[in-house]
Amino acid sequence: MPEALLEMRDVSKTFAAPGRQVHAARSVSLALNAGRTLALVGESGSGKTTCARLIMREYAPDSGELLFRGAPIDASSHRNMRAYRQAVQMIFQDPFASLNPAHTIGYHLGRPLRLYGHGRSRAERQAAIAALLEQVKLDPELVGRFPHELSGGQRQRISIARALAVGPEVLVADEPTSMLDVSVRLGILNLLNDMKRGLGLAVLYITHDIATARYVAEDIMVMYAGQVVEWGPTESVLGQPAHPYTRLLLSAVPDPDRPYSAGVGVGAELADIDRIRREAAAPQPLAEEVHPGHFVRPIPARV
């Protein structure tokens, strides 16, 4: 196994809410490798975005550590953090909120180039911007436009281009397609796949849409209540789901082959949603390998 580019080891993060503690991440371990996509799936509140924010160093872990190229990140060193931020870039969910409405596309792409010293002269930067737009399959003519003149899909491509501007090694994409139309969504997913293969990027793809996860990711992790309950190669986890919560999630995915009217009724999992959620939220410290590289945290037997 090659060394992971970025690793979370036993990372926990707890937030204080009135009268209770919210365990947003409980001993989460994951590894991102060059040229591969890891999908993190789960419903809202499962802790997916907390993981993204821990990786982006927006939150500091309560315990556990983050390793970049095998070494812990030294947050006290300005130079280290700068290198880390250059290497790890993020794409956000809302393409309407993640671009500044007062600035042109050229500004959005020129700024990271300038800050990270790619292209010192104006002409060099302009050439770099044109190349970036081309890379995300947009018309270089868009450079003088403002975000409001672009469609959602185009804006999301600008977000990707902005992330690519600094020459990153890791992309963290938090629900990058959930606000886009189906046909546009596919274009973004294809682009992510192209970037992964062409540039050898390590991608963390966060989503609640398991079908898109399957489309982009070699590996998948299913998260609930701050815990990763099942993980492994995508085909193995989706084909032979072992955790009741994974099965619940899969049975809820819209499936035209199972119309409600056919009287199939709810699956065993759906009839039992509350119990499965309750049990899946309990601490599950053990992990068991059910297939090669495919692990599950068994729900502790009720005593």
Partner: peptide, 22 residues
């Protein structure tokens, strides 16, 4: 047909779907 073709599926062959270009 195009709408169906642009939907990634949960089962079956994992193939590259075309479409959705800007």
């Amino acid at each position: 047909r195009k709408l169906w073709a642009s939907m990634p599926r949960l089962r079956g062959e994992r193939v590259r779907l075309e479409g959705g270009d800007a």
